[in-house]
Every structure is written in C-alpha cells, then in structure tokens.
Design a protein around this nucleic acid. Structure first.
Lengths: 147, 147
DNA sequence: ATGAAACTTCAAGTACGCTTGAAGTCAAGG
DNA sequence: CCTTGACTTCAAGCGTACTTGAAGTTTCAT
C-alpha cells in the first residue's frame, strides 16, 4: 500500500476535480510533495483536509475563511480528532447565526406581507445589518455573512 | 408630489445603486418609462418590486429565480397585497428547506467529528444531495440550492 | 520501444451580480 | 448663458471558485 497518492487518486477519492485540487494548493489550502519529475504526491491525511474544505463550503465559508481556519491546525504534527473538533466548533456558530438570520427573514416576511409594509426603509427587515451590502464589485453573497 | 421618480431618487429610497437598478432593468426585473429625452422615470410602486428583489436575494434566490417569481405577478393591474403574499409563500418553502439543510449539516458535523469519520465517501454527510456540485464553471453556491 | 493515459504549467474562459469609466446629453440654478 | 450635477449608453473590469485548453513531459502497460 502506497503511503502517498497521486492527484488523480485524490480526486477520485474526494470527488473534487484535479483542477480544483491544484487551485486549492495555489490558494494554500493544501500542500503536496513532488516526485523528482515534478508530479504531485499527497499524504493520505490531506483527504481529511479536503473533506473539511468541502464541508465548510457547504456551511457557507469562503476559501479565504477556510484557509484561515486550516491555519489553526498544528503545523508540526498530524492533526488529531480534537484539533478538528476545535475547528468545527467555529462553524457551528456560523451555522447557528445563519439559521437565526433565515428565521428572522421568514418571520419578518410574514409580518411584512401581513401589514402590507413590504417597502424599503419603513420596514425594519429590509435593511438591518445589511449583510448583503458588500464592498466593491463582485457577486453579492447568496448566503449572507455572519457579522 | 410627483407621481414618477428619477433613478437617483429611486436609488436613494431603495438603497440600491443606480447602476444596479439599470442592471435589474436590463435583466427584466423592473421596467421604466422614459422622458422625451430618454431619462428613466419610475412609478412609485417599483419600490415594492425592488424590496422584493432585495428580500429574495437575502433568502438566497438568484436574479433569474427572482425574475421568474416576479413574472407571476399580474401584468395588467398593479399588484395587490395578496399577489405579493402568494409570491412570498414560495420563498418560505425555500427558507425552510435551507434551514433544514443547515441543521442537517450541523447535526452531521457533530456526529462526524464525534465518530472521527470526517472523511469523504464514508460519511453520509459529505455528499448527500451534493447540492453544491453545479454544472460547469462559475462560483459554487455559498448557500446551497433547494432541490 | 511505443502509444496511451496521466501528469505538468500557464493563460484564458465562465457565471454571477454587479461597478467603473469613457464619452456624451439633459436639467436646473445663478 | 453657463456651469454643475444628474442622467444616458456601452464596454470593460472585478471577486469568487473554479474549468478548459494548449503545449509539453512522465509513467506505465504492452
């Protein structure tokens, strides 16, 4: 059994396209060893790292945010279960915040439709926090951001 | 009191940039009348339409989806409260679905961290639905999509 | 030894939801 | 009348998260 796997194998096992894996590496989310000829070789434990990335994306984190989280893992040794557990706690807060926001939207939706106030400014729901108002260009957040 | 307002005024009242309003018009989400010289004039009730767009975006709908919703409004008369109410019911389902998904993620997160199975394939949470797996290029959904 | 499959880098393309800038027109106050 | 600000169109740019393609190299099975 090989200790290290190729990018093709990693892609197959993770379900993440090889091009995406290269992109993650470029972004600093994962690292690879290289053979003498320049081909990437991955230690198996990067699978967990990738799993983390995939999960965290579903939760709504950007790759930058995910990178910041991953940077909290210990550098000098393989991350253990409790290392991952520590990371995961922060997304729970993220998930909870997002759920709360959605519930607020839902509730307010009912309220506003009920009172007929579905108009800007007047309605306390149209703006508060204004999470979708980002800085500069680019697509607005689909999911909103935690404060 | 003017019955119709300029794009600048609409922008100020809605909090949405004029460039975005033009973009919405280009995308067919709103319409404008024109003065003889070509300047846009908006009937006041477009404010509601814009409010709807802003809300729906926060909920996680794309502009295309929002457009599809808006197309359900009656063409020949000004939309009434119950028209809006009808539309809003569909997002409630959307919101609920999204909340459910987040809760599933949260629950599974705990579970997976607990059992140490945070790895692809093995874990029933890594893939199910695979909502983030879109077709073709472009950014993946931050929020996931309803079925 | 050879041909296919897998790998490499680098540049450019893609979808979304806009913004920004150029170049020009229109409206309103002094 | 003239300037200032608001408006017009059109093209290009931006940030995110990648994919695709070109052009070349390496690995591997036959």
């Amino acid at each position: 059994m090989n200790e290290e796997i190729t990018i093709g194998e990693l892609s197959a096992r993770s379900g993440v396209a090889a091009s995406a894996l290269r992109y993650y590496e470029e972004r600093g989310l994962i690292r690879s060893l290289r053979t003498s000829s320049g081909h990437r070789r991955y230690p198996r434990h990067v699978l967990r790292r990738i799993a983390f990335v995939v999960f965290a994306q579903k939760v709504g984190l950007t790759l930058d945010e995910i990178g910041a989280e991953l940077d909290k893992l210990p550098e000098n040794r393989a991350p253990r279960r409790d290392d991952w557990a520590k990371l995961s706690r922060s997304w729970r807060a993220h998930i909870d915040a997002r759920i709360t926001e959605l519930e607020r939207l839902k509730e307010g939706l009912t309220e506003c439709i009920g009172c007929g106030c579905l108009s800007m400014q007047r309605c306390r729901l149209a703006n508060p926090g204004d999470r979708a108002a980002r800085f500069g260009p680019g697509p607005r957040l689909l999911a909103g951001k935690p404060g």
